[in-house]
């Protein structure tokens, strides 16, 4: 099963001299060489693709959108009414984010996003999905027992809170707008942005009340 492979993280130190390359590593290298030799891929473009999603596009983009929606009411209204154009106004657009809807959490409604059929995820705002989002247990259970899944993320919600699960079966991509944490009235947009977690924008957690001591 997919998550059983989680144990052997090498956290990706490119060339670990003490370890022979795995079978799959060799297989992928062979495929890449073949495609380069055939003139079907440019190795520099491959490096650029990796660099884009490893170092440039990530949840900081979504956090920017969320923090701005907390402090700027006009932007918030724009974001909820025409998410695509509001998000594009901050410079975020493109692949796997062509059609976006924003889901607003309230005291009585909590939104949670999943893709039961594959791994659809708003790349321009959150980067590539974490392993658990793509795993069989999350895809199977987020729709059928969302409260139990949330508990596995340490998130307990009262039964008075309605959980709305969004299964990303089309090219619509969903971003959760989490509630602004308590005790943050004095914080700037930039400081707020630091408090927005990726998980809160997928909907598996809520944001804890702010205190100067929680680092």
């Amino acid at each position: 099963m997919q998550d059983d492979h989680n144990h052997d993280h090498d956290h990706d130190h490119d060339h670990d001299a003490t370890e022979a390359p795995s079978e799959i590593e060799l297989r992928v290298k062979a495929l890449e060489s073949l495609l380069v030799e055939k003139g079907l891929v440019d190795p520099e473009a491959l490096d650029e693709l990796v660099d884009t999603y490893e170092h440039q596009v990530g949840p900081q983009n979504g956090a920017h959108v969320v923090a701005k929606a907390w402090v700027d009411l006009n932007f918030r209204e724009h974001l909820l009414a025409s998410p695509g154009s509001a998000i594009a106004s901050l410079g975020y657009s493109g692949r796997q984010g062509e059609h976006i809807r924003v889901l607003k959490n309230t005291d009585s409604v909590h939104n949670l996003v999943v893709c039961t059929l594959c791994s659809c995820y708003p790349w321009p705002l959150l980067g590539l999905p974490p392993q658990w989002y793509k795993s069989a247990p999350y895809r199977a259970r987020a729709v059928s027992e969302p409260r139990k899944v949330l508990e596995e993320f340490g998130t307990q919600l009262g039964t008075d809170v309605s959980i709305q699960v969004w299964d990303s079966t089309s090219e619509m991509r969903y971003l959760v707008l989490p509630q602004r944490p308590v005790n943050t009235d004095h914080l700037s947009e930039g400081a707020l942005q630091q408090l927005v977690t990726r998980n809160s924008m997928i909907g598996v957690e809520t944001l804890k009340p702010f205190s100067d001591t929680n680092d």
Binding site: N6, D12, E25, P130, S135, P137, Y138, R141, F153, R198
Partner: peptide, 17 residues
């Protein structure tokens, strides 16, 4: 299929290999 067992957000690399 078992529990989700998420890696911590701050520790998880974009690619594992």
């Amino acid at each position: 299929l078992g529990a989700v067992n998420p890696e911590s957000e701050t520790d998880e690399p974009v690619f594992h290999h």
